[in-house]
Simulated assay, not measured.
Amino acid sequence: MKTCLVVDDSSIVRKIARRILEEMDFQIVEAEDGQQALEACKEAMPTAVLLDWNMPVMDGYEFLGHLRRLPGGDAPKVVFCTTENGMDHISRALHAGANEYIMKPFDKDIVAAKFQEVGLVALPE
């Protein structure tokens, strides 16, 4: 079973992402900040991470650095999902090990397209 860790301090964003990703056959684990997400990854490494940038305790960028240094932390496909749309943010995220970057607000089509691009879901036939 494919798992996706949805990391966002907004419960509404996590709920919307959960609905979209469950339709794409992912089992969902939720975290409301980077620290919780890191603990979840130490317990069980997910297939994918949908990651917010701006969160309390530990932001998405800091979490990504920690994730990539964990044993097996190079495996999950990480898709940043944030309101930060500056080229400097996008470049930093990709340089730190993110696989893709999407802007909020998002919808099912955007998430599906990005997850297809990184090889997490098959192209529709």
Score class of each variant (00 low, 15 high):
Cys41Asp: 03
Ala44Cys: 07
Met45Leu: 14
Thr47Trp: 07
Val49Cys: 05
Leu50Cys: 01
Leu51Met: 13
Asp52Thr: 07
Asp52Ile: 14
Trp53Leu: 13
Asn54Glu: 13
Met55His: 07
Met55Val: 10
Met55Gly: 09
Met55Pro: 01
Val57Ala: 10
Val57Glu: 04
Val57Gln: 07
Val57Phe: 00
Met58Gln: 09
Met58Glu: 05
Asp59Val: 11
Gly60Ser: 11
Tyr61Asn: 09
Tyr61Thr: 06
Tyr61Ser: 10
Glu62Pro: 00
Leu64Asp: 02
Leu64Gln: 05
Gly65Gln: 11
Gly65Ala: 04
His66Asn: 07
His66Pro: 05
Leu67Gly: 02
Leu67Ser: 03
Leu67Val: 03
Leu67Tyr: 05
Leu67Arg: 06
Arg68Lys: 10
Arg68Thr: 07
Leu70Arg: 00
Leu70Gln: 00
Leu70Phe: 04
Leu70Glu: 01
Pro71Arg: 07
Pro71Met: 03
Gly72Tyr: 10
Gly72Pro: 03
Gly73Trp: 12
Ala75Phe: 09
Ala75Tyr: 10
Pro76Glu: 00
Pro76Phe: 06
Pro76Met: 06
Lys77Trp: 04
Val78Gln: 00
Val78His: 00
Val79Leu: 14
Val79Asn: 00
Phe80Gln: 03
Phe80Trp: 11
Phe80Ala: 04
Phe80Met: 14
Thr82Trp: 06
Thr82Gly: 02
Thr82Ser: 15
Thr83Trp: 08
Glu84Ala: 15
Gly86Ala: 15
Gly86Arg: 15
Gly86Tyr: 14
Met87Gln: 13
Asp88Tyr: 12
Asp88Cys: 05
His89Glu: 07
His89Asp: 08
His89Pro: 00
His89Cys: 08
Ile90Leu: 09
Ile90Asp: 01
Ser91Pro: 04
Arg92Ala: 13
Leu94Gly: 03
Leu94Pro: 10
Leu94Phe: 12
Ala96Phe: 15
Gly97Thr: 11
Ala98Ile: 15
Asn99Ala: 13
Asn99Val: 03
Tyr101Leu: 11
Ile102Ser: 00
Met103Leu: 14
Met103Cys: 09
Met103Asp: 02
Lys104Met: 13
Lys104Phe: 08
Lys104Cys: 04
Pro105Arg: 04
Pro105Val: 05
Asp107Gly: 07
Asp107Pro: 00
Asp107Lys: 03
Ile110Val: 11
Val111Leu: 12
Val111Lys: 01
Val111Gly: 02
Ala113Arg: 14
Lys114Trp: 07
Phe115Tyr: 14
Gln116Thr: 10
Glu117Pro: 01
